[in-house]
Design a protein around this nucleic acid. Structure first.
Lengths: 145, 145
DNA sequence: CAAATATAATTGATATATCAAATAAATAAA
DNA sequence: TTTATTTATTTGATATATCAATTATATTTG
């Protein structure tokens, strides 16, 4: 017998990340309507390391190069990021935060902290560890050749 | 201090469902290149209950009405589904599987079983229960008003 | 019943996801 | 060093995600 898809654990995994994203986006919208959850991630990653290439950013947020190109195009259009020539490797760009991007990143910090804390209310450290262990097992099962 | 986003549990949740979908899609492709993971879900749900309205289908697979309309349009174009008048409520449609859709659903059954089993190899029943409990807590935290 | 409201589905606009093909620059190999 | 290969990014095509507006039909209310 094939169980209904709505009763599998994958359904719950998908639902949980979608609800988290919806919740997080709602709170980010209070700060700006021009910032998505993924844009926020990109701001944090680039602020932390301005040497990231676009494809490295893509690896960090699980998007392919084409998506990253277009997301960064948009973030530049919206004034959060800036693309400059990369001195050492002219295939790449040096992507940095504009003053507006830096300002926005600061405003996002407490929102993101709140989002994560609220979503994990009542979930113990031990449970988070369990969760991580199991999810890593699933990832390994799906990615091993 | 704000932890790097790549170290949060949400990152792992997102990664796990993406890897599962990638893995599942790869195996579905062996049967047909015209069927996505979501299309497969829709086939199973409709086969199980041909009285589902499009918006009910959307609720089941976490998509809004616009996405469902377009996905079903495509599945009809590809010959898997069929839309008929709904006798009791003329705002709705009665959506059913064509012979090709039924055939495909049969072929998908073992693939989906394999996908789920393989992704959960080495994960005990108890762990799945733990996972479900924690994810439900996160969902509840994110959806409670 | 008639008007107001609610529901189901569609459409349009913009952004993202994915794959394939194309560019351009760097690196390896002959 | 010239050629071949690899790497980084972009672009095009098609599908999906999301929101807002629209249409058609049902239901509720006055």
């Amino acid at each position: 017998m094939l169980g209904l898809p709505s009763r599998t654990i994958f359904y719950l995994i998908e639902r949980s990340i979608k609800e988290y994203r919806r919740f997080a986006q709602k709170n980010i919208n209070e700060l700006s309507h021009d910032i998505t959850v993924d844009h926020a991630l990109i701001l944090f990653f680039i602020a932390d390391n301005p040497n990231l290439s676009q494809s490295e950013i893509g690896n960090l947020i699980f998007k392919d190069n084409a998506s990253v190109t277009r997301m960064i195009d948009l973030m530049i259009k919206n004034g959060f990021l800036q693309r400059d020539i990369h001195k050492e490797d002219r295939r790449k760009f040096r992507i940095t935060l504009t003053p507006k991007g830096l300002q926005t990143k600061k405003g996002l910090k407490s929102i993101v902290q709140f989002n994560r804390a609220h979503a994990l209310e009542g979930v113990s450290e031990a449970e988070i560890d369990q969760l991580a262990t199991i999810l890593e097992k699933i990832i390994s099962n799906c990615t091993k050749t």
